[in-house]
Design a protein around this nucleic acid. Structure first.
Ligand code: MN
Ligand code: MN
Ligand code: MN
Ligand code: MN
Lengths: 222, 222
DNA sequence: TATAATTTTTAGGTAACTCGAAAAAATAAT
DNA sequence: ATTATTTTTTCGAGTTACCTAAAAATTATA
């Protein structure tokens, strides 16, 4: 029984549970959601009850929640919508990659299967969003690219920037200033043991050092 | 003080008041809104109080409400967003003109000045929506076309279809079947006194009779 | 293993939007 | 000018999503 009457708020919880559980693999605890979405833990428990009753999650008292098959579908659809809209904003409306997330948070809640199907087609069935995150197709399948963070990469490794972990505008603007974006080629020219910062060569041309904090949030192909 | 914290529901009320007052000219009564948006009259009175407190309407007890200047601006922005999205759906996503209204009812509530500004540009600053309704510009000005209904038009008059009054899918699909759409040329070849139906010549080619009900809902240029 | 700290749930309450029933005001009919 | 009808408002109450404070369960520490 796929309850279509899912509210704005419920969709946000489903997406949060999906992300915090590594795409539905692990269980998610009350405080995780509270930290992520900002309602108090008591409110999270209330919502757990409602979502469990709608068969979107299974809730074992004091042991967290897991997405049901049904719930995974619901979450994947929200993620799909969010990412398709982000592509639209960047590709068609010339938004900058640090401007799209907030608006997509609203657009992802528009209910219309036809709209999403047509939008997907209009955009040429994109596989990745402006931050390199994979876009689920109408069945919920997505192409997860092989990738590692700059923190994980070892000296001498070279790859193309395929995604960013953090989509915070402050972080993305910082990358712009460093002239780092998706599709850039990066080569690890040094790894500073002292503070975990990484020296890189951008597009075989520009040399810079990025902090551990930054290195953790950039993915290159591998 | 232009209160930006306006809810989904409040926006719907503002738009309804705008339409039911002929673009803010007349006062609107409790039952008008109740019939139009479907909440019970008691709920309408509650909302009147809230909107009045936000300086969006003036409410004289038992005498209906009127939009304030501020309220008119808010309503016009919602109308602008609604109609721009309808253009997007038809022009870019190939929606049919009878499919757009429901989705636009959702999209009109997305809050993002940049989004609307960019969407407007992307669409080429359209003046009219897919039903011939004028689109307010960012200042709230709109080009109201000179027009009359087929019911008002007299025998022998000829004009181009510039708008439809009713945007109900059933009505629009009926027009499709009759091969009547925006930009069609219509000539009044007979007005039937008995039932108010109108005989027309479509694009100097096809002859049909439309009922008074239909004639009332088609606008031609004049 | 007993105690302390943390996490989660329950209990009770608020604000927004809705309702039905009843009271009040305005309008229409006698 | 009364009376009847219609419209609008008030009142009490339900729902959703949130809160704080307190209780219960789990996990960590001594
Ligand atoms: Mn995003
Ligand atoms: Mn993204
Ligand atoms: Mn419409
Ligand atoms: Mn329209």
């Amino acid at each position: 029984m796929n309850d279509k009457n899912i509210s704005f708020t419920e969709e946000n919880y489903m997406k949060a549970i999906f992300h915090l559980s590594e795409n539905g693999q692990n269980e998610v605890f009350t405080n995780d959601i509270s930290d992520y979405l900002k309602p108090k833990p008591a409110s999270v428990t209330d919502m757990y009850k409602k979502l469990a009753q709608k068969n979107l999650i299974t809730h074992v008292k004091y042991q967290g929640v897991r997405l049901t098959e049904n719930g995974k579908k619901v979450a994947l659809l929200v993620v799909r919508k969010h990412r398709l809209w982000e592509v639209f904003l960047v590709e068609k409306l010339k938004f900058h990659w640090d401007q799209v997330h907030e608006v997509a948070e609203q657009l992802e809640h528009i209910h219309s299967p036809l709209l999403i199907q047509r939008l997907d087609k209009f955009l040429g069935f994109p596989q990745y969003d402006p931050h390199g995150d994979p876009i689920p197709d109408e069945k919920g399948n997505m192409n997860v690219a092989r990738k590692k963070t700059l923190e994980e990469a070892t000296l001498g490794e070279k790859g193309v920037v395929v995604a960013v972990q953090d989509t915070n505008p402050v972080f993305l603007k910082h990358l712009d200033k460093l002239q780092i974006g998706l599709k850039c080629t990066l080569e690890i020219t040094d790894k500073v043991e002292y503070d975990g910062s990484v020296e890189i060569l951008i597009n075989n041309f520009k040399r810079t050092i990025v902090s551990k904090q930054v290195a953790r949030n950039i993915y290159i192909s591998c």
